[in-house]
Nucleic acid binder design. Structure first.
Lengths: 118, 118
DNA sequence: CGGTATCCCTCCGGATACTG
DNA sequence: CAGTATCCGGAGGGATACCG
C-alpha cells in the first residue's frame, strides 16, 4: 500500500498528455524507420526486412500489425503463388508525416548541438 | 551467425532517422509528462513527484538526470535548510516545445479517430 | 527536502527453427 | 514469399528502506 500516488485514472492520462498517445503509435525502435520508408513507397515484407538493420521477422510482423491496428498502415494481400503482400500508409497514416518531420528536424538540431559541445 | 543484416553501422543510423535521436530525448513513459509540466513553470523535486502519477523517486531522478545531460533541463540548487532544488527548461530545451505540441495535436486527432471508430 | 541503495520481477525483443 | 512458434537473456523499471 501507499504507492506514491493513487493508481492512474483515465482522466489524468487523457488530460495531461496526448503526447503519449502519439508516442504509443510512432514510438519505439522500429516504427519510426518503418514509417520513414513507407512514406515514399509502398513496400513488400521482404523489402522492409532488408531495409531495416537487423530486424527479426517476428519483430517486423509485430510492428506492422500494431501499425495496422492503429489505422496507420494498410496491408494489401495478393493471393498469388508465390504470395505477395504490400504495405503502405493509409490516408490517416499520412497525417502523421509532418509530425515525423518535426521530430527529424529537431533531431538534427540536437545532434549538431551535441556534436559541437563535445 | 547470419543475422538478418549486418550489425548496424553509424551511417545507417545517422542517415535514416534523426527521429530516433529526438525520441531518445523525449521518449519513454515519463519524459513527455515531465517536459509538459516544466514548460509552464519551474518546479521543485517534490512538486514534480506529486504531479506525476505514481513515479518512484528513483525513476524521477533518473529521468531528470538524463534530461539534464541532454541539455534540456536545468537544475538549480539552493543550499538552504531545508534544501531546495528547482528544475526548469533550458533555452535549448524550449526549442522542443513546438515538437511536443505537434505530438499532442496529432495525439488528439488520433484519440478522436479511435473513439469514433469504436 | 531531495535524493541513493538495494532487491526483485516483468516483459521486451533477439536468435533460431519451422510452415502454408 | 511471408510469415509462426518457441526459447531465452537482459535491461527497464517498480517497491521499499535508508541517508545528508
Amino acid at each position: 500500500m501507499a504507492t506514491y500516488n493513487k493508481t492512474v485514472n483515465e482522466n489524468e492520462q487523457r488530460c495531461c498528455c496526448p503526447v503519449e498517445a502519439t508516442l504509443s503509435v510512432i514510438g519505439g525502435k522500429w516504427k519510426p524507420l518503418i514509417l520513414w520508408h513507407l512514406k515514399e513507397n509502398t513496400m513488400r515484407y521482404n523489402s522492409l526486412q532488408q531495409v531495416l538493420p537487423g530486424i527479426s521477422p517476428r519483430m517486423l510482423t509485430k510492428q506492422l500489425r500494431e501499425l495496422e491496428n492503429d489505422g496507420i498502415v494498410n496491408r494489401e494481400m495478393y493471393p498469388e503463388i508465390p504470395p505477395r503482400v504490400e504495405y503502405s500508409l493509409t490516408d490517416f497514416g499520412r497525417t502523421i508525416i509532418p509530425v515525423l518531420e518535426a521530430l527529424a528536424q529537431w533531431g538534427i538540431k540536437y545532434t549538431d548541438q551535441k556534436g559541437s559541445s563535445k
